[in-house]
């Protein structure tokens, strides 16, 4: 599904504080699997995730998405791919304060200009699936952490993405909420979504839902364990 070849990312190029966050990553991420990126702080997980999710472009190297080379695409087209293919769940939920839960869920679909009624219904259905119907008109800053995250998940799903990207999704949650998140993740994975996430949390990384763990250190992949849970993985 996603193929990375010799991905490098440099920050502050040509200045004295030039920094190579990624130094040649080769990686294959299969479709309909849950992949976790693991590694110490500063190892480049977030940087890699943002390249995979078309949030940024690699300084060099190739990214292939379903066979199409997308590494040289300008931002305009990356955005297009991003909103059709990826849904994001961030560590700090990143909801827009002052808007209701429902509005937040609908936001990614605004630039597509679809029918409002359809969009509205879809957002309500997603919130209902995540047991948030009763809170849909509430402003997001009044929601609890777990509720906020579920709103963020609903938002990630509004454009029907094939791939869900989650950066440290459980870092702001307690154990019970983390378990709940993993349960949602399991459902998504079972419904055929590809999930790519980063985490320190053993609860996530060691969970049986995760099919593949990629260990990173200093901007390189040190170990790629693709053998886990092959029994459970869908055909």
């Amino acid at each position: 599904m996603i193929e990375l070849t010799d991905i490098r990312k440099a920050f502050n190029q040509g200045r004295e504080n030039e920094f190579h966050a990624l130094g040649g990553i080769d990686l294959q991420l299969p479709a309909q699997r849950v992949t976790a990126l693991r590694g110490p702080s500063g190892s480049g997980k977030t940087t890699l995730l943002s390249i995979i999710g078309c949030l940024s472009r690699p300084t060099s190297g190739r990214v292939r998405l379903k066979g199409q080379d997308i590494s040289g695409l300008p931002e305009r087209f990356l955005t297009d791919i991003r909103r059709q293919t990826f849904g994001f769940v961030f560590q700090q939920f990143n909801l827009i304060k002052g808007l209701s839960a429902l509005e937040n869920v609908m936001l990614p679909a605004y630039p597509l200009g679809g029918d409002w009624r359809e969009l509205h219904e879809k957002a309500q259905r997603l919130l209902g699936d995540l047991r948030l119907s009763h809170r849909r008109e509430a402003r997001v800053e009044w929601l609890s952490g777990g509720e906020q995250q579920r709103v963020a998940i609903a938002r990630a799903l509004i454009n029907d993405p094939e791939i869900i990207i989650a950066d440290e999704p459980t870092a702001n949650l307690d154990t019970a909420l983390s378990m709940e998140f993993m349960a949602i993740l399991e459902k998504l994975s079972a419904s055929g979504k590809t999930v790519i996430l980063t985490s320190h949390d053993p609860l996530v990384v060691d969970s049986s839902i995760v099919h593949q763990v990629v260990d990173m250190r200093d901007g390189r992949v040190v170990r790629q364990d693709t053998t886990r849970n092959t029994m459970e993985s869908p055909a």
């Binding site: 060099s60 190297g61 590494s71």
Partner: peptide
């Protein structure tokens, strides 16, 4: 240089 992912290219694009 559209093929490049350098920061300069990103700035130019913007």
């Amino acid at each position: 240089n559209i093929r490049s992912g350098s920061e300069r290219q990103l700035v130019l694009e913007r």
